[in-house]
Structure formats: structure tokens, C-alpha cells
């Protein structure tokens, strides 16, 4: 979503993005004239008249599970967004019985929060797991 019109979205997709991604952008490119939606989400820059790089993860109940907002010059890490969605999906599937510690990726161990885990995280989770 940006403040550009749907016509500009079409030109960008048809003339540039479709050359980077076969078939063009697969998801809807939303137009937010005047930044009305961006203001509600806190990502509209009034001075520049554009939206900053806000990214929101919204679950199937419509609840915001996480967000990240960057100023324009720095791009996002798409894989990190995917990782977070996968982590939230796992937690939701386990109905909150499992948690994903720092550095978690699909396939890596999860934590089962509860009285038995208190003071014992150091036994099952090592600091180098946050960095690999």
C-alpha cells in the first residue's frame, strides 16, 4: 500500500515489476490517497506526504501480532517477515502451549512455557542458538 493511485500501480507492475517477477505482483497493490489508512496505522509521514516502510502481521482473527516500521532508505528483510509469520502460526496452532525462543526457525526446538521451565531455560536453550 502506498499513496500512489491504482493507475500508477498498474504502470509500475506492468512496466517494471513484471520484469522482476514472472506474471507480475501476485497480491493486491493497494492505493491510499491522502494517506488516510496510513495515518490510522501510524505510518504516514505528514511532512513528506508519503508512507514509511510499515509492515504489519495480522492473524486470522484480525489481530495485529507484530509490526515493524522503517524510514524510507532502508529496505526490509522479507525472510524475517516470513519467519515471524511461521512462528506466530506455530504458536497459534499449539494454542499457546509452545513458544519460539530467540533465533527460532522452522524445524528448530520450541519452548513449552510452564512452572517446570522457570529457571531451566539455560539447560535447553543456548545463546549461540540466537545467532545461527
Amino acid at each position: 500500500m502506498s499513496i500512489d493511485s491504482v493507475f500508477v500501480h498498474k504502470m509500475w507492475n506492468d512496466n517494471e515489476l513484471s520484469k522482476m517477477v514472472k506474471g507480475g505482483v501476485p497480491f493486491p497493490m493497494l492505493s491510499d490517497a491522502g494517506g488516510r489508512v496510513g495515518k490510522v496505522f501510524g505510518v504516514y509521514d505528514e511532512d513528506a506526504g508519503v508512507e514509511t516502510r510499515g509492515r504489519f502481521i495480522i492473524d486470522p482473527d484480525g489481530v495485529v501480532q507484530g509490526y515493524e516500521v522503517l524510514t524510507p532508505p532502508v529496505g526490509r528483510n522479507v525472510m524475517e517477515s516470513f519467519r515471524q509469520v511461521q512462528a506466530f502460526q506455530l504458536v497459534r496452532k499449539s494454542k499457546g502451549k509452545e513458544a519460539t525462543p530467540s533465533g527460532w526457525r522452522p524445524g528448530k526446538m520450541t519452548l513449552k512455557p510452564g512452572p517446570d521451565l522457570v529457571g531451566k531455560v539455560w539447560e535447553v536453550w543456548k545463546t549461540d542458538m540466537a545467532f545461527d
Binding site: 504502470m11 509492515r55 532508505p73
Partner: peptide
């Protein structure tokens, strides 16, 4: 309309920009 699905909502400064 996307209730029941996971949504990744992304804002960006403008079409035809880099990054």
C-alpha cells in the same frame, strides 16, 4: 474480507522507488 487468513500488510514510500 481476509478474516480467517494471515495478512502481511506492507506500506512503502512510493511506486518506482528503489529498495
Amino acid at each position: 474480507e481476509y478474516l480467517g487468513k494471515w495478512v502481511l500488510l506492507c506500506f512503502y514510500p512510493g511506486d518506482f522507488t528503489f529498495v
